[in-house]
Simulated assay, not measured.
Amino acid sequence: MRIPTPLSVPSVSGAVALCKIALLLTTGASAYLSLSPPNPPAPPKELMTRRTFFERAILWFTFCSKAMTMIVTFCDAFATFSLAFPSSPLSLPLSLLCPSPLSPALIRSLTSSPHPLLILGALATLGGATIRRACFRELGNLFTFELSISPTHRLVTTGPYAFVRHPSYLGVYLTLLGASAAGLAPGSWLHECWLRPPPCRRGAVGFDAQGVESGLALLHIAKTGVRCLGGVGLGTAVAWSCVAFWTMKVALALNGTNKRTAMEDAELRRVFGNTWDVYAARVRWRLLPGVY
């Protein structure tokens, strides 16, 4: 019987790992700050009458986006830290975070220099959180995630609102698109450990603890004639399902947010009349100056 040789683990640069971890934690923390309501929900009597499915589920949408972003980025940071600093008491066995075989190629992917998509995603989420927090401060207790008009409502035209009419929604776009880029970037924990199926080779069979060939492996053999170590794997299937759910949720959120800009404009014009017309004539752009 051939005895397997020990795994040759590539050296990991601590500085590179810390840079990647900083970008990941920035992404997760920014998503939390951007998507956490600054005030309690608006009373039902102050809500706008036209409420779509997106409006009714807005708090659920934001909670899911925030939770999924934080889980992915923090797990990625833990995996990177555990590879770079294996002797640290904070390190975790990578088998707890990564079901794929721990090969030198996988380690190189997880500990390589931050991919441009990760850098861009972290900067986008940070920018989105910065804009959103500025909007929270500017509106104070008037800012709610639900569309509402309170009896004491006033038209805010200062701060970020002096440049575009709906800057907080620009922050939403930056947050969700940035989190998507950071979580799915090549070299990320999700991309390398969960979205890639385990390698297959002829003659290799997956067995469980009792030595029984796995059903997924048998199914793969029946279809392709190639014996696959562990088959596609339940973890990979669940990971792709989560990515599909995230994509659908982000698409609905961005579409609903875009529709919100027109709804808010109409409601503010109804409430503030000529004051709103003067403001809209001065600040023509909804989300991005000179573009839209």
Rank of each mutant, 00 (worst) to 15 (best):
G14N: 02
A17E: 10
K20I: 09
K20A: 14
I21W: 06
A22M: 14
A22F: 14
A22V: 12
L25S: 02
L25R: 00
G28P: 01
A29C: 10
Y32R: 04
L33F: 08
N39Q: 08
P44I: 00
K45R: 12
E46Y: 14
M48A: 12
M48K: 08
T49W: 04
R51Y: 00
T52H: 13
T52M: 09
F53K: 14
E55T: 15
I58H: 05
I58Q: 05
I58V: 15
L59V: 08
L59M: 12
W60N: 12
W60Q: 10
F63S: 15
C64Y: 12
S65A: 08
A67V: 14
T69S: 09
M70C: 14
M70W: 13
I71W: 08
V72I: 15
T73P: 01
F74C: 10
F74L: 11
C75P: 09
D76R: 14
A77G: 11
A79G: 11
T80D: 15
T80Q: 06
T80G: 11
F81A: 05
S82E: 08
A84V: 04
F85K: 02
P86W: 00
S87V: 08
S88P: 11
S88L: 02
P89K: 01
L90W: 13
L90D: 05
L92H: 07
P93V: 09
L94C: 09
S95H: 13
S95M: 10
S95Y: 15
S95R: 09
C98I: 07
P99D: 09
S100P: 15
P101H: 08
L102M: 12
L102F: 07
L102W: 05
S103F: 06
S103Y: 03
P104Q: 00
P104K: 00
P104R: 00
A105G: 02
A105W: 01
A105Y: 01
L106I: 07
I107Y: 06
S109I: 07
L110M: 02
L110K: 00
T111F: 05
S112N: 11
S112W: 00
S113M: 15
L117H: 09
L118W: 10
G121H: 13
L123D: 10
L123A: 05
L123P: 13
L123Y: 15
T125H: 03
L126I: 04
A129F: 00
A129K: 01
T130R: 08
R132E: 03
R133W: 14
A134K: 03
A134G: 13
C135V: 07
F136G: 02
F136P: 10
F136L: 05
F136Y: 14
G140T: 13
N141C: 14
N141Y: 13
N141S: 13
L142R: 06
T144R: 03
F145C: 09
E146C: 10
S148E: 08
